[in-house]
Design a protein around this nucleic acid. Structure first.
Lengths: 339, 339
DNA sequence: GTGAAAGCGCTAACAG
DNA sequence: CTGTTAGCGCTTTCAC
């Protein structure tokens, strides 16, 4: 059983003092090359283990990033985390992950815990149920930088990494128009969440830009699940005036549309063009495969980390900065009727 | 900017001493109810924030679990993590996540980092490239309990949470046999990874049990990707003797089989029964939908945490214990030809 | 039931 | 370039 080795043990062994050892270990410029090498070798040989708690207590700062997401187990968020982790590891940061399950209470709770842990930063994507941003302000008041990504609070200034959802929707509508569709319906998410609002906005702009009329009976809100989407299509299909294409705010909902279409005997893409959002892996494997929007999720994660590091190393702290990621339309079978 | 509040501040305010406050905050039996209430109220009012680093330094133990997985961004592992996180939060543990990207060096590195962080436990699922278990032994020698799950080293005793892959494969073969398939091929994973070995073993036992012969030309190893699986089916289909069903060690590979079948004009399930492994969400949405094995991934995560807590609270430490999760065959279109 | 005092291991002035 | 010194905030004997 290895009895923990401290810098004092190393110092003693080498006839030095703890401060010198401490500095040598951290590559402090004051220390001579010879001493550094000597100390570092000894440390390795003696299996010295840096005591993170002690150094945190002393310096008041950790090398840990707290990440708060609605759900870990979906492709988008897990890829974001994966991206964060990648850059974090390079810079010897650890990450602590909290999932809120779209519950606001849990989100507040998570942020509090992270503040307690005295994390170096908090990266957060808000839950659908988020009602205010006091918990984020609390973090900031504790001098903990907050980086918001994807689902953010637009009333709160600060560091953000976003997808250009507006352009994405416009691009999708343009693509559908290019395929000869002109009667485009839309399945939206909850109105109060920024990303879904932007997607909706993009849809409206796209429609307008292409000279199509906006019909509110072709738009359904809060349609993010398979079931809701199915229901929505069934309802829309009963209308006297049917759409010939549908843009959907989430891939899962697009799968629901596909299901409903199968039931109703609607041929996709011939009778109904379909376009999803997020480019979840399974969109390739449905039949027909689903046209979707690639959000470069792991890139979002990497950018969060980079933005934080930039802020950390900046002379004067950035009060705000937004990095906008350009999504990419991935065309698949569900929206192509022009060869 | 709130100046950090310590137990001394609370003590001062209340005319008590830091030790009493410390004890009151942690609900120590020695302290009178009245004092406890007094202290806890004051703490809340003064926005006292427990200093984790200081208490860790003092006690030498953290409330952090390190989790090491090959990849975060797939359904299986992210659900395991989600399960861990659930129980962890209940017990006020945090989790730190490391992904190895199936790289052995990174795995060793991650475990070392976690040891440095002095985590309360390490939960790990080995990378495909793992060559030895010295890093795990290192953790144990630092008194850090290690819980292995899913992909484990069977030469290392200890705490484990496993899926019953053997039974799962047998059940799958039985099901296929029940559907009148009798010429069953198998796409295996890498031979040296326990779970894939077990799935293979189960296949062989299932074949035997049903009186079918084992044909090595119907078995392909290292087939976990779409491409590899496609290739494998193309090759097998050229044989003079063709199989009439195929059991596949991973869902992603099953999708590859579906692809290849489409190309070759093979009808699934009529001409070829298909069964995957892991019950990834997209298996429901392919066409035909894919029969697969539900591994109850978040349950695995919960059990890891529970096993650790059991060990932690045990009088005499468990030297070893294995929890076996029974998977469930989920029958879908790809393997049903009997109505 | 509460207080006094020491110390966990490290870092950062400050001094030389 | 290296040493001295003090202290981060908490817990825990040991007293009373």
């Amino acid at each position: 059983v290895p009895q923990p080795v401290t810098i004092y043990n190393i110092a003693e062994k080498l006839g030095l003092t703890a401060s010198t050892v401490s500095r040598a270990l951290r590559n402090h410029p004051d220390i001579s090359k010879a001493t550094k090498k000597q100390v570092q070798d000894a440390a390795k040989k003696m299996k010295y283990k840096h005591n993170v708690a002690a150094s945190t207590l002393r310096t008041g700062s950790t090398k840990t990033i707290g990440v708060v997401v609605p759900q870990i187990n979906n492709y988008f968020f897990s890829s974001v985390i994966s991206g964060i982790e990648e850059v974090a590891q390079e810079h010897r940061f650890n990450i602590i992950i909290c999932q809120t399950n779209e519950d606001f209470e849990k989100e507040v709770q998570s942020v509090r815990t992270l503040i307690q842990q005295n994390v170096a930063a908090i990266f957060i994507s808000l839950s659908k149920a988020t009602q205010h941003n006091r918990h984020l302000k609390e973090a900031v008041s504790h001098k903990i930088p907050v980086v918001q990504f994807d689902r953010t609070d637009c009333t709160l200034k600060g560091l953000k990494v976003l997808n250009d959802n507006l352009s994405a929707s416009i691009a999708a509508v343009r693509h559908l128009a290019g395929q000869g569709y002109s009667r485009i319906a839309f399945l939206a998410g909850p109105k109060h969440v920024n990303i879904f609002q932007e997607r909706f906005e993009g849809y409206k702009q796209g429609i307008k830009e292409n000279g199509f009329g906006y019909r509110k009976e072709w738009v359904a809100f809060d349609c993010l699940t398979k079931e809701k989407a199915k229901e929505a299509l069934l309802k829309i299909w009963k209308l006297p005036a049917r759409p010939d294409a549908i843009l959907v705010s989430a891939d899962l909902a697009a799968v629901g549309v596909l299901d409903a279409a199968k039931e109703l005997g609607i041929k996709v893409p011939q009778q109904l063009g379909l376009c999803g959002f997020s480019n979840e892996p399974y969109t390739q494997w449905t039949s027909p495969s689903i046209t979707s929007i690639n959000q470069f999720s792991s890139e979002i994660g990497r950018k969060c980390m980079e933005l934080f590091l930039e802020q950390k190393n900046a002379e004067k702290k950035l009060r705000e900065k937004t990095i906008m990621i350009q999504p990419e339309l991935v065309v698949r079978e569900s929206s192509v009727r022009v060869p």
